[in-house]
Design a protein around this nucleic acid. Structure first.
Lengths: 220, 220
DNA sequence: CGACACTTTGAAGAGGTTCAACTGGTGTGG
DNA sequence: CCACACCAGTTGAACCTCTTCAAAGTGTCG
């Protein structure tokens, strides 16, 4: 919304490291979003593909009666909003103050048509999303509340490159709606993990992983 | 396993109807699998991509303690086993006697490298899988047992092009492991749907949708 | 016909939800 | 600078859905 920033690089250096970054170092808008601000809505035309520069984003869907399911959390470097069809299937919101890179979808498909590595990068992004979604299915279908919470904490640690101390960008409600639980169950589970000495909760949005090994055992 | 059959068409007619069929009408092995026979196992090298010719397939993962989560059911025409990495992330088994088309992965990536429409078809397949997985997440995260069962029945109907009478190729255990429930809950839910007059159960593997409208209301 | 596997049904139990009250941190205004 | 309000999070107790364990029923195949 405020002060769109533009990148300068025009000649992309092709590392072919698998990401889109190499082939997509084209100038593009980088707007900022405040906490809880909507980036795009379910059903809107998908004219752009997005990348988190800094901050964190949730994508979700809502049932008629208000039940919400968070599909995915997106952290710095992650792409989101890539669609097969015309419209976005989810709503995207910033979880904290967030900077987003926007890539015109047309530019992307042009690039993919011209360059095999770009097409492959898009395929890889989609396939990675599929893998993550399959892991999510396994979590929701066959894991207990405790295993789910432990899994989420480890996932956040890995994806934000945190060691023991986690900055948790999401609210308890966000966690609950990602894990298919209620806010109360998430809260209770966190305190019981704390009581068992597996984690510490110095503040609401900070978690310290005190026994990562034990947490990993729960999720394996 | 028995009597691999080979298709004859060499010159593909390119309809570009979005499927891989148009660009992939190449000769390939079409083995048959008996009910419950494994097609490939989790962790095995992914040398092939598969397509259901007739029958039905389940893909699943198993946790250490034996809990199973079925990732997806695949019906005639569906592709499966398409992987980003080297290895299969799931196990695939025939649910009934099934014929499968096997496509060498190398041939597929060669084709994708040469032809943009093939690359796009592969992307589309992956993206459709992602959409289905996201729907699955919503189901497991935020729907009741009843809504899940109703949703599965409608999904089977749609994907097998059945009208009111469904041939259900999977066992109650398969349904349960797809829906994140137990076999008993699935059974009880089906009988209660029958009691309410929404479905009929002429035999274990046959379901008649008697009030599709009502079923759809449950899943919307 | 009988054996076996799968399904259904029943009763008791557990995990997670719901509803309600309380706590704690944050921000604002007097 | 403190007081108060407000909101997110936590905790407690009752409840409910789904699970677990057990037994009976159904269908299939030798």
């Amino acid at each position: 919304m405020l002060s769109p920033i533009r990148t300068q690089s025009f000649e992309p250096t092709v590392h072919l490291d698998g990401g889109l970054d190499a082939v997509l170092a084209m100038p593009c808008a980088c707007p900022r979003f405040a906490r809880d601000e909507e980036i795009f809505g379910e059903g809107e035309t998908a004219d752009y593909v997005y990348q988190v520069v800094s901050g964190a984003v949730r994508t979700y869907r809502i049932l008629r009666d208000g039940r919400r399911q968070i599909d995915e959390f997106h952290f710095a470097g992650d792409h989101f909003g890539l669609e097969l069809g015309e419209a976005h299937r989810v709503t995207a919101e910033a979880m904290t103050d967030t900077t987003i890179r926007m890539i015109r979808r047309g530019a992307l498909s042009d690039l993919a048509a011209r360059r095999g590595d770009a097409a492959r990068a898009i395929l890889r992004l989609t396939a990675e999303g599929l893998q993550r979604s399959q892991d999510h299915v396994l979590m929701l279908g066959r894991r207990s509340a405790c295993e789910r919470v432990a899994g989420l904490l480890l996932d956040i640690a890995e994806r934000t490159h945190a060691k023991a101390e986690l900055d948790v960008p999401m609210s308890r409600q966000d966690m609950a709606d990602y894990l298919g639980l209620t806010i109360e169950t998430v809260s209770r589970t966190l305190t019981s993990l704390q009581d068992e000495g597996l984690i510490a909760l110095p503040s609401v949005r900070h978690v310290v992983l005190q026994d990562r090994r034990a947490l990993e055992r729960m999720t394996a």
